[in-house]
Amino acid sequence: MAQTRFDRNAQLNGWAFIMPAMMLIGIFMVYPILWSLWMSFQVGRGTNFKFGGLANVERLLNDPVFLRALTNTCIFFIVQVPIMIILALLFAVALNDSTLRFRGLFRTAIFLPCVTSLVAYSVLFKSMFSGDGVVNNVLLATHLVNDPIPWLTDPFWAKIVIILAITWRWTGYNMIFYLAALQNVDKSIYEAARIDGVPAWARFTQITIPMLKPVILFTTIISTIGTLQLFDEVNNITQGGPGDATLTLSLYIYNLTFRFMPSFGYSATVSYVIVIMVAILSIAQFMIARDRRRTA
């Protein structure tokens, strides 16, 4: 009897706590999403639409630009997300060490890139990585390379610049989440481990990583979504070039929506490709997390 009343209370509270958010999401997302879903079945341009069934999906599969954008996006995601997550984690753990000096300085410095304005840093990145920019000058002076690297004008190196740029901008951002989460880890566990002679690396893998797992999962999913929606850097630093080498799905959606003859149905269809990719990846990431929990 007492048990059921408790359950019912929990149910009621469960709904009460999420209700304000759900109402707002219901108002501001449900209708736009229905609209864009419905639009993805429409063909036509401007304000003249007609039902096209799966015509947009068919167009997608035959679209060389879409395939280029999809490939680039996947490359960015596969290469960049792991690098950034690991870097952010290492920085967070290093900066959480209370015996470290200048912690505040380091912490602020590493966070700085994500507040530095996009305009400023894209202008700077372009000039630093230009053919006779400072990066090439340093590399030439130290004889690391014999010829200047065509950073922004070669398809391969342009991708590298974009990966460097996103990593630069977002590592400190991810670090914030880890730093906050580390405050919730009980310090006495570390002390006990240290007294037991557990080495630092083992403390990191055996204690820190498992304790931070929820937040690591969170940042991985958020970074995945962020990279799949990558737009700012490619639009501002490389404009998707050279020769579409850094064109991403989001930049392509933007072009279809604002730069080309408006084709909303088709750009909505491309948008849902990102949703499907996120769905698959999130399921995979959740499964991996769950499997680890079971075997642990």
Binding site: W35, S36, M277, V278
Partner: peptide, 18 residues
């Protein structure tokens, strides 16, 4: 989580209409 992954550009026009 899935809604989070829809690019905003796809939702902007209907949201603006509302």
């Amino acid at each position: 989580l899935l809604l989070l992954s829809i690019p905003f550009a796809a939702l902007m026009v209907p949201l603006f209409v509302m």
